[in-house]
Write a protein that binds this DNA or RNA. Sequence first.
DNA 1: CATGTCACG
DNA 2: ACGTACGTGACATGA
Length: 529
Amino acid sequence: MVLKKLQPLLEDAARPKVGQNLKYDINVLANYAVQLRGVRYDTMLESYVLDSTASRHDMDSLALKYLGYKTITYEEVAGKGKNQINFSEVPIEQAAAYAAEDADVTLRLHETLWPRLAENPALVTLFEDIEMPLVPILAEIERNGVRIAVDMLRAQSRELERRILDIEREAHAIGGQVFNISSPKQIQEVLYDKLNLPVLKKTPTGQASTAEDVLQELALDYPLPRLILEYRTLSKLKSTYTDKLPEMINPKTGRVHTSYHQAVAATGRLSSADPNLQNIPVRTAEGRRIRQAFIAAPGYKILSADYSQIELRIMAHLSGDAGLQQAFRGNQDVHRATAAEVFGVGLDQVTEEMRRNAKAINFGLIYGMSAFGLARQLKIERAAAQAYVDLYFARYPGVKDFMERTRALAHQQGYVETLFGRRLYLTEINASNQVRRQAAERAAINAPMQGTAADLIKRAMIAVSHWLATSGADAKMIMQVHDELVFEIAESAVDTVREAVRACMTGVAQLDVPLVVDTGVGDNWDQAH
DNA sequence: CATGTCACG
DNA sequence: ACGTACGTGACATGA
């Protein structure tokens, strides 16, 4: 058998491998009990590290872009849609040509991409020390999968179904007609044409918006918007989560296996798809019931470990602002500290409202805040929001300088960098269209924080994975959610692993402010929070 | 296949 | 006068 002949080569770490999207190959071979080792160069990741903003990093696109070569597509050999045949059914001559081209093009891409990457030592380090080591780790997390309490989700689906039907009946009664509440178009007709409610906002295409914040506003004066909001919340939970997750369980493993995409997000973050496990509800009690269905196997526990305020801490580090650094060094509640500074009161004089406003300001900072955006978020006058911004910058001058430096650098270079030299190109930073240019400026301010956070947790995953392998602890990493890592751990090993994970996560970098990690343990993901 | 909406960090 | 908070993925609708 061919695989038996190749196995020693594939498993020999001393023989370096070049490939395109090697995580895929690792997982395919793992299904045949072959451990692919020596994974050295992934051309998809070479392309991503060179320019994360490129629209695609698949082999066909890269071949066209870098080699001027049009590859044989998979559809050309296997067909598409319902007529598509299995690759094993493709005639051997065609299959051989396709497969050989694949190998040839990948190597040629590497020979083109690597010298470009090698021109920038920081990118080489990023590639060799972060992105490539992460590949087999992501593959393993995907294969580990997550255990799901199917019965619990099915029961939730049935309950949601009942409540949705009730709301539907009531909404139709108030609207005076039967209409599809899932259809923004039909909602518009009922709310704005039939019931003559005021149009508070329009969508980008000029339609009267029925988005959440608009309906919230209208709900103060009318009954129907409230019902539509409830309907939307419940049907979102049902269609996206309680109905869908049980369908996604792999019958062979009895678990749900997501795919982590390592070359999608422009900032360096991972993304998760099929299913997306990075947007499981948490903000409402209703939604958290779904997390209760993410469970550990018998005899095991779920551990969640997340970075506290990671992006603001990075901002404190990158900006060097003394006040912000002081707040983190004293391990203060940073929103409270901000409120005290901005509103000029003692820490113990900060009211709930002051803290809420300060929190919105802190979020705004991470997003490249404008007074307009802050005003909309806080539902206050733009002038009042501007006053907050001015006050903030007066109290944290280092942050203001950092923002201005970052903006200037982005204009001058056409890109910004994370702490580890990851680049984000901003093609519209010098656009003549003001709206686009300002959007690029906000992205320029956000990217170093979001991207550095991504670099840090990737390093943490590598450190944790190494610790797990060498310690032999009975524990598996099962999810990553941007600033959080989730594990399934044998009960007897929980305390040890918890502290090791914390040490790995806090120790990945020495910033000017401490990295803090909160952990929780439970029988399910909700309890672990 | 585009659009609007909404789930997460 | 303009019109936005940063980054993702998935769903239902309706052409």
